[in-house]
Design a protein around this nucleic acid. Structure first.
Ligand code: SF4
Ligand code: SF4
Lengths: 133, 133
DNA sequence: CACAAATAGGACTATATTAGTCCAAATTAG
DNA sequence: CTAATTTGGACTAATATAGTCCTATTTGTG
């Protein structure tokens, strides 16, 4: 059905929330409360964004998250890759794929698929978090 | 993980096969044998393409499928919609959606999502079967 | 007419992915 | 120390995808 995952949607909503909060740090609880995104799920998402240096975090009380990059410097593709793994429109477009698709020998559409993969990535790489703010 | 479904990949491979076969009709068995696409699955795919008038079919012995449109007149988006249902990058982008996403009231990213949906559709509408042949 | 080859299509199963939950540990300001 | 917070593993539930099985219908040919 080709869908942007809820994780990515939630990330976009959260990143927007944080970028609208100025310089102060924002807690996961705060975002969860005002967006109805499940707290535990949101926490994981923010953690992954932090590990990717999209967010900065402070632990402990009065801790929270803040943006570590400008919204215009965060490509949507980056967020997708962090949360759902490498974005590949087909099995064979996964880089370093040990396990080959069982049709790889006879498949007649690989080269146009490579082209489509490029255009697909381009669309999502050019789309930045700033476009959602 | 955002993937083109196997159904759609198989459809592309099959459509390529048919369009390379000139004017004669091609059987599902023939395509299945030379591509290793599971016969039963392929049959369903071809049937759906026929119901959408992308293919023409003849039943009975010496029956089979043939293209009903020129490859350059078949958008990839069309094939995706036929096989996997309406292409909507998020729940709220499904047209006539009775059931609303549970965040619809508070969601802050709907309008950029609408824009992204447009660009997404554009990419897949501009990509034609002829690009795969 | 009988038969074989083909499309047509419903129902089902298995597998994989996504979404969400639960729990416990580590960190830190006050 | 304590409360608020991030960190992160393990688990469950729900949904979607891929594939299988079976039967009916159509039609050209002997
Ligand atoms: S090899 Fe062909 S069938 Fe296999 S994943 Fe790539 S495009 Fe799809
Ligand atoms: S309303 Fe917002 S959260 Fe719900 S599907 Fe649309 S974009 Fe996603």
């Amino acid at each position: 059905m080709i869908r942007i995952s809820k994780k990515v949607e939630y990330a976009l909503i959260a990143l927007k929330f944080i970028s609208k909060s100025g310089d102060r740090v924002v807690t996961a609880r705060e975002i969860s409360d005002s967006t109805n995104i499940p707290y535990d799920l949101l926490s994981k998402i923010l953690q992954k964004l932090k590990n990717e240096n999209i967010l900065a975090s402070n632990q402990g009380s009065y801790g929270g998250y803040s943006l570590n990059k400008r919204p215009e410097d965060i490509p949507l593709l980056n967020v997708m890759n962090v949360l759902d793994g490498e974005t590949a429109i087909t099995e064979c477009m996964i880089e370093n794929h040990d396990i080959e698709c069982c049709h790889t020998d006879t498949c007649s559409i690989k080269s146009p698929i490579i082209q489509l993969q490029k255009e697909f990535e381009e669309l999502f790489r050019n789309k930045k978090i700033s476009d959602f703010v």
